[in-house]
Nucleic acid binder design. Sequence first.
RNA 1: GGGGUCGUAGCUCAACUUGGUUAGAGCACUCGCCUGUCACGCGAGAGGUUGCGGGUUCAAGUCCCGUCGGCCCCGCCA
Length: 444
Amino acid sequence: MQTERVLIGDLKKHSGKEVTIAGWVDVRRDHGKLIFFDLRDRSGKVQVVALPNHAEAHKLAGDARAEWVLQVKGKVNARPEKMVNKDEANGALELEALEIIVLSAAKELPFEQSAELNLDTYLDYLPLTLRTPRAQAIFKVQAVIIAAFREFLTSQGFTEFQSPKLIGEDAEGGANTFEVEYFGHKAHLATSPQLYKQIMVGALERVFSTSNVYRAEKHSTSRHLNEYTSLDFEMGFIADHTDVMETETGFLQLMAQRLRETCAAEFALLKSDIPTVPEKIPSLKLREAQKIIKEEYGVDCINEPDLEPQHERWLCEYAAKKFGSDFIFITHFPLAKRPFYTMEDDADPGYAKGFDLLFRGIEITTGAQRIHEYDALVAALARKGLNPEKFAFYLQAFKYGMPPHGGIGLGLERLTAKLLGLENVKEATLFPRDLNRIDILLSK
RNA sequence: GGGGUCGUAGCUCAACUUGGUUAGAGCACUCGCCUGUCACGCGAGAGGUUGCGGGUUCAAGUCCCGUCGGCCCCGCCA
């Protein structure tokens, strides 16, 4: 029968008792006759002390090294008053080792867990480096973001669905796709769940998905990935794109609330702040934003169809200063710059009922109201030089009745990175795929 | 596709500008000492094809040319 294991985070409840814990050796401090080591499990850390009067345990404590996996039976002692470590959750107690079982020895580590690493070294050793408190904090925060996305949208009557990753045609014609050999045919990896989201609006009215998408772009920057997670929702029966913006704002507000409730320690560790999300996120038309850039920063980008990364950084700086918001919506990009399914604003011809959301200097979302009338959509395809016949499957959704609708795609890794102040989006990706790397460098 | 920058020990870096004996440091590792440490401490040791190839020179980690690789910026996007 297996020994009952106590979680390290629960040791306080067992003061004075004999318990068995198990975990990884963090740091060892060997004084010869007296050996200390910190043991770590999913719930926390505790100092174990091995004394010579338990000879076998003392010997094994001397042999153990960082990352060895040990099971330790011991007595939960209060530490002498002078030895209390106020910085640790278990700093007032320690475990006196009575019996140690080595569950797994570890080879010599290439570096200490606390070492500051270059990004490529960090990525080369992810199975090891993901054990650091920093990495664990990043991916706990990311899990909370996804949970908040599910929680908020579910509460608003959205249904989660799984979008296909293998698609036939390069439907949207925008981003470059990875080609896949498919039983003698050519298939592609999805660059977005967009078309399936819209089809699902016809079925379930309000839907969302959290999917990996794939972009075969040879970019090499601190904000691009070739496989990333897109948080997508699409909702029917909207008046216009501002309904979509409100829904996204509602998600961001719940996300910030959940982060404040559960991730304060993680944000403290990463030395970043949880943003306050305004009741109404400030919103500017692209042309207004460009005017501001000219007035505030002296660069004339008026009439350019899009924002450059530097412009996005400036606008976020401006939003923080002027509106006290880390977020700002930019609306009404030229229709020509947006995908075929984007709806034009009749009140502002030539411009889209769509938006980007900028956060702390970077674009994290694109959203819009979509064209829902079959004939208008077929015409829009033709205007973009796309062949409507290739979209016949998708077009059925519109042929047979589709409400006014719209939605967004949000880059999870970008949001995570900017929330936590990470310099490179790859740090906010468990196993990033980029131009040079799928787990290991492709050149190796 | 265009541009910038970097490559020295397992890791993080110094020495390069201004060429000069045996390429150093911290951490990790090995051995020894240590009963209150918590980045434990002290002493000793081991660890290098300076990415690779060529050139200049009495002499190259350092200068030049080529090449391979990383990172970053722009384009494109989330």
